[in-house]
């Protein structure tokens, strides 16, 4: 009953955004889908995010960003994940991210980008399917 692997997800907000409604909605949806969701609050540095992912041994990281700094912050996060050997963690992003930036983000290893208005069911399905592939 208590045993068995649960999907552990870190929902993180890098940079200087001052609200986190979207991040909390996603966190809550994933929790309601039976996952263990670690939420770390606003204004996280790439170092904090990666170190948290490491200590919490998460399977998935969801990055939420509204400030427009994704091209500055995400490459740093992906680089740190590589340095710490966390290459098997599934990373997706959400928030305000222009269409034309998405190829660049996918190139550095962000697996998927969800824009505003994405139904939470879609994100849940995406995470579950990707986790299933792994086992």
């Amino acid at each position: 009953m208590q045993s068995g692997k649960k999907i552990r997800v870190l929902i993180a907000k890098p940079g200087l955004d001052s609200h986190d409604r979207g991040a909390k909605i996603v966190a809550r949806a994933l929790r309601d889908a039976g996952m263990e969701v670690i939420y770390t609050g606003l204004r996280q540095t790439p170092e904090q995010i990666v170190e948290t992912a490491l200590q919490e041994d998460v399977d998935v990281i969801g990055l939420s960003i509204l400030s427009g700094a994704h091209l500055a912050l995400f490459p740093r996060i992906m680089e740190l994940l590589r340095q710490k050997g966390l290459t098997d963690v599934l990373v997706f992003a959400g928030g305000i991210i222009p269409e034309e930036d998405i190829p660049e983000l996918k190139k550095i290893g962000i697996k998927e980008v969800f824009g505003p208005g994405t139904p939470t069911e879609m994100i849940i399905k995406y995470v579950l399917e990707n986790m299933q592939k792994r086992t």
């Binding site: 966190a27 039976g34 969701v37 770390t40 904090q48 948290t52 919490e56």
Partner: peptide, 29 residues
């Protein structure tokens, strides 16, 4: 649902990059 929202780290995040500290969130399951 079997899920959990683990939010205790919110108050401790500045400690997360200190190598002398290890923080782990845990759900009661």
């Amino acid at each position: 649902t079997g899920g959990a929202f683990l939010g205790d780290r919110i108050r401790m995040q500045e400690l997360s990059t200190d190598e002398g500290v290890f923080i782990r969130s845990m759900a009661t399951r």
